[in-house]
């Protein structure tokens, strides 16, 4: 691991240690359940690390790594009114995600993560801000479960939309992110509250 990568991992570890867990949602009846998993491929990870960039999930999101598939951030479902197969509503998710650039020393953290059923974008609000940023979107080869099937599932390639790429580059002071940049894969599993 080169010096940039070491600094990046160290920044990521520091971020993870200082992250604040969100309160768990309370509900009557059966609450909404499921998760959204974002997997960054090894190709994307390598490219990002070479540019000094790392991203880590913030609680209550969790992270894992598989040498074959890459790094996965999993965001738990906390609510929502979505009907994914009808492209209606949104799913609210717990946790957050932080991006850091070791070369510029800048860090940006996001919470209030949500998935829009219609735009199929994963968005989050930067800490200290109020306007959501579309960070990732379902790209090519996206498959959705049939209407009425529970839990609902949505799987496909993960891309970075143009607005998300522009925001991240501006916030981190980088030129790494590009519109429709391939990240890896996205997978959503959702059962609405009942």
């Amino acid at each position: 691991m080169n010096r940039t990568a070491v600094r990046t991992v160290a920044a990521a570890a520091a971020l993870a240690a200082t992250a604040i867990a969100l309160p768990s949602a309370s509900a009557t009846g059966t609450p909404a359940s499921g998760s959204v998993a974002l997997t960054a491929s090894n190709a994307f990870l390598t490219s990002a690390l070479r540019s000094g960039i790392a991203a880590v999930p913030l609680p209550t999101a969790t992270g894992s790594y598989n040498s074959a598939t890459g790094a996965t951030a999993t965001f738990p479902v906390t609510g929502g009114n979505a009907v994914l197969a009808r492209y209606y509503g949104s799913v609210t998710l717990g946790g957050g995600i932080a991006f850091a650039d070791a070369l510029t020393g800048k860090i940006v953290c996001f919470h209030q993560v949500s998935l829009s059923a219609r735009s199929q974008e994963l968005s989050a609000v930067p800490d200290g801000g109020t306007t959501p940023v579309n960070l990732f979107e379902f790209g090519g080869d996206t498959v959705i479960s049939n209407i009425g099937v529970k839990p609902e599932t949505l799987t496909g390639d993960a891309d970075i939309p143009a607005d998300g790429a522009a925001y991240l580059d501006q916030a981190l002071g980088t030129t790494f992110f590009t519109a429709n940049q391939a990240v890896g894969s996205l997978s959503a599993t959702y059962t609405p509250a009942s």
Binding site: R118, V143, N146
Partner: peptide, 12 residues
């Protein structure tokens, strides 16, 4: 229009 959801595949 369906926006980004256009082209999503559903088996059936």
């Amino acid at each position: 229009t369906l926006g980004n959801a256009c082209g999503t595949l559903t088996a059936g």
